[in-house]
Amino acid sequence: MSYHYPLDESWSKEEIIDVVNFFALVEQAYEQHVKREELLAAYRKFKRIVPSKSEEKTYFADFEKSSGYASYPVVKQARESEQKTIKLD
């Protein structure tokens, strides 16, 4: 991993951990697979920290620019799927 997770300096330590965990699960969905419920729980925590849709889009874009992994398709598949694991190609 030679990229940085998009973070806000005003977040608490716990919030930073939750956001990093969410983006790590997005990364895992591309590289291996991730449990759907675990991803959705992490996304709910992310949304408590970043409730604004425009801010979410900014963080998603920053993460994709840095890592090459798009967060939105992962979240979309997790929401729409009934499968227990999520894997993107």
Rank of each mutant, 00 (worst) to 15 (best):
E9W: 09
S66L: 04
E56K: 14
K87S: 09
F22S: 01
L88V: 15
P51T: 02
K13L: 06
P51D: 01
L25C: 14
S67L: 00
I86G: 01
Y43Q: 09
Q32E: 10
K87E: 10
S12Q: 08
F23P: 00
E37D: 13
E56G: 04
Y72Q: 09
Q32Y: 11
K13Y: 05
Q28C: 12
F46G: 01
D62F: 11
R36M: 06
S66N: 02
A24Q: 15
Y43G: 10
D18P: 01
P73V: 02
F60D: 00
R36S: 10
V50P: 01
Y3F: 13
H33T: 07
E80D: 10
I16L: 09
S67E: 01
K53I: 13
Q28K: 15
E38V: 12
V20T: 14
S10Y: 00
L7V: 09
Y69C: 04
P73Y: 00
S10G: 13
A61N: 06
A42T: 06
Y43I: 01
S12H: 09
E31N: 14
A78S: 13
W11P: 15
S81N: 11
K76M: 10
R48Y: 07
T85S: 14
L39M: 02
Y5P: 00
M1W: 03
E9H: 13
F46D: 03
F46H: 01
V75K: 06
R79D: 07
T58Q: 11
S81H: 10
K45W: 03
M1N: 06
F22P: 12
D8T: 04
V34F: 04
E64G: 01
D89K: 15
K84M: 13
L39N: 07
E82R: 15
F23T: 00
H4D: 06
S54Q: 12
Y72C: 03
E80N: 12
F63S: 01
K76F: 10
V34E: 05
I86S: 14
F23E: 02
Q77N: 07
K13W: 04
K35E: 06
R44V: 06
K76P: 02
D62C: 09
V34L: 05
Q32I: 02
E80F: 05
V74M: 09
L7R: 11
I17L: 11
Y59P: 08
S81I: 08
D8E: 09
V75W: 00
V19S: 00
H4C: 06
Y3N: 05
V75E: 03
D89W: 14
V74W: 04
K84N: 15
K65I: 01
A70F: 04
I17V: 14
E14V: 13
A70V: 05
